[in-house]
Computed example of a mutant assay.
Amino acid sequence: MMFAPFLAGVMWLGASGGGTHYDKTPAEVRSALQSALVPLHVLGGQVTGSRVTRLDDETMVTSLLDEGENELMRFVTTVSADGEGSRVETIVEAPKGVHAKRAEETMKKQAIAVSLLELVAQEHVASAIEGRPFNMLALNPAANAMVNAMPETTSSVDDSNAATAEWSRLQQQGYGETRDNGWGSPNGDYGGDWGSQD
């Protein structure tokens, strides 16, 4: 049941398969994916970060990592030349390492959760390539259509997507870690006497 916490609040109504054409070169696409951060706000508490590796000239892997930097799942993206642009296809695969067997078994039993994770993977890749925040509504086509039909709501949705993307970025770049001066330290050393409990 490792997928349930990842996507508990997400409603899924379907998605189309196959690769997507982008008007960017394969090198531009690979560069965008290399620097992209995963959307922690939809992946749940077990996923604490990601690592991107390049397997070959066309294949990149975004590994979803736990606190010990073990792979929980992986997004495998194939990038190939398509005219002057690129054709990009992303699938979800079981991880390598300590969680591999458990993930493989779960993937067989939790087809809906895997489908949801595939939507997350596709939107993660699309938002990285297009240079925009992860769009929560991409996971719910009906809600996305409704918002697109009411342009006055678009800026609120865009603001929300930008705010959650910033939160996710800060989480992955260690914003919550202890500062050099000890302020916010879990051992109660607040740095000086400001906020101390003495």
Score class of each variant (00 low, 15 high):
Ala81Lys: 09
Gly49Val: 13
Pro26Trp: 00
Thr59Leu: 07
Pro141Arg: 14
Thr62Ala: 07
Tyr22Leu: 01
Pro5Ile: 11
Gly176Leu: 14
Asn148His: 11
Gln110Lys: 02
Leu170Glu: 09
Thr20Gln: 06
Gly68Arg: 15
Gly174Glu: 05
Asn181Asp: 15
Ser31Asp: 11
Ile112Arg: 14
Ala4Gln: 09
Arg132Ala: 04
Gln172Ala: 03
Val61Pro: 02
Leu137Ala: 13
Leu137Val: 08
Glu177Gly: 06
Leu117Trp: 12
Val29Arg: 02
Asn144Glu: 15
Val76Thr: 15
Val52Tyr: 02
Ser16Met: 08
Thr53Pro: 04
Glu93Tyr: 03
Glu58Tyr: 03
Gly192Leu: 04
Asp159Cys: 01
Pro186Val: 13
Val114Gly: 05
Glu67Ala: 15
Asp56Lys: 05
Ser185Leu: 06
Ser196Thr: 15
Glu166Tyr: 07
Ser16Trp: 10
Ala4Arg: 12
Trp183Glu: 14
Glu89Trp: 00
Ser80Gly: 05
Val114Lys: 11
Tyr190Gly: 07
Val88Thr: 04
Lys109Gly: 03
Leu137Lys: 10
Ala163His: 02
Glu118Asp: 08
Asp82His: 05
Leu37Tyr: 03
Ala145Cys: 03
Ser185Trp: 10
Glu58Ile: 01
Ala8Tyr: 12
Gly131His: 11
Ser50Asp: 14
Glu177Ala: 13
Leu37Thr: 02
Ala126Phe: 06
Trp167Asn: 10
Met107Glu: 07
Ser156Ala: 12
Ala165Asp: 15
Met107Leu: 07
Tyr175Trp: 14
Gln171Asn: 03
Lys96Arg: 15
Ala165His: 13
Val98Thr: 13
Val88Cys: 02
Gly176Cys: 04
Met150Tyr: 11
Ala121Leu: 10
Ala126Leu: 04
Leu116Val: 11
Ala100Lys: 15
Glu166Thr: 12
Glu58Val: 04
Leu117Glu: 12
Val47Thr: 08
Asp158Glu: 15
Asn148Ser: 07
Gly18His: 02
Glu69Asp: 08
Lys101Met: 08
Thr48Ile: 00
Met11Ile: 11
Thr53Ile: 15
Leu117Cys: 07
Glu58Met: 01
Gln34Tyr: 03
Ala121Thr: 14
Met2Tyr: 04
Gly18Val: 01
Leu119Pro: 03
Glu104Tyr: 00
Thr62Tyr: 04
Glu166Ala: 12
Thr90Glu: 08
Ser127Arg: 09
Glu93Cys: 06
Thr62Gln: 12
Asn135Ile: 05
Glu104Trp: 01
Thr153Ser: 01
Gln172Lys: 05
Gly44Trp: 03
Ala113Met: 10
Val120Trp: 11
Asp159Val: 02
Val10Phe: 00
Lys24Pro: 00
Ala27Tyr: 00
Met11Asp: 05
Trp183Thr: 13
Pro5Asn: 12
Gly68Phe: 09
His21Trp: 03
His41Ala: 12
Gly44Tyr: 02
Gly131Leu: 07
Leu7Asn: 10
Glu130Pro: 00
Ala138Asn: 13
His99Pro: 01
Pro95Ile: 12
Asp180Val: 02
Val125Phe: 05
Ser160Thr: 15
Ile129Ala: 04
Tyr175Val: 06
Gly184Thr: 07
Gly14Phe: 08
Asp193Asn: 10
Val88Trp: 04
Asn140Met: 09
Val76His: 06
Ser50Val: 07
